[in-house]
Amino acid sequence: MSTTQVRSASAERLDALAAGPDARAALIGYLPVGFPSVPGSVRAVRAMVEAGVDVVELGMPYTDPVMDGPLIQRAVDAALAGGTRVRDTLVAVEQVADAGAPVLVMTYWNLVLRYGVDAYARDLAAAGGAGLITPDLIPDEAADWMAAADAHGLDRVFLVAPSSRPERLASTAAASRGFVYAASTMGVTGERATVGERAQQLVADTRAAGASRVCVGLGVSRPEQAAQVASYADGVIVGSAFVRPLLDAPDETSGLDALQSVVAGLAAGVRSAARSPR
């Protein structure tokens, strides 16, 4: 547990939505930097926020994304082939930071290690980023990042999974700031017909282990799934379903239109949820 008092941009947004007139969960949208291009991804993120995303998860393209399914890997491979650099992610953060949603960067750990953990935290904070989501970094290996996040006032979003035992839920909840990312299912990112049934229990267990806010990701792609998850979680994380329209579109304009329509559908789903009290 951090003793340093650090404001959390994503927690403030989640709390404001929960306390607001709709008393609703947040819609958290993922897109990778550099797909279809760096400026194109900035436009896509802004379009996503405009259509109803509350918190942005900006992905740093990586050569070996073991927690991502084939759809996101296709987009990320294209971003790397297009020459996207780690530095571009910081530029993109800066360019979307004023869009109206806190921006978290999702990154595999080696990219931050190579940049320098403290240097990356410093530059991310300077760019207006809210923090990091780290799919292949567990708190046990995160001492440097915990210190850097405290020093630079950043959120650190760690993951829990249906396989996590109670003591790990507790240690992960204690290490996280902003929210805890609950993987709805044992698996990688991708659209699924149903959201894992273990997700609701995992959210309850993670809260019981001390987490103030728990958001659910992996497999959420349809409005009714978003509504279902929004009824028990603090946020609904959507990735592949937002990347697909950009991958499928013949050109950028139609891609952005299709993206906004998918976002609007999921945003409506989140807003329609009957919430159980936190």
Binding site: P135, L159, V160, S163, R165
Partner: peptide, 12 residues
């Protein structure tokens, strides 16, 4: 060394 893996694998 270490364990730079998704949390989902830690139990296994």
């Amino acid at each position: 060394g270490g364990r730079f893996v998704p949390e989902a694998l830690v139990a296994a």
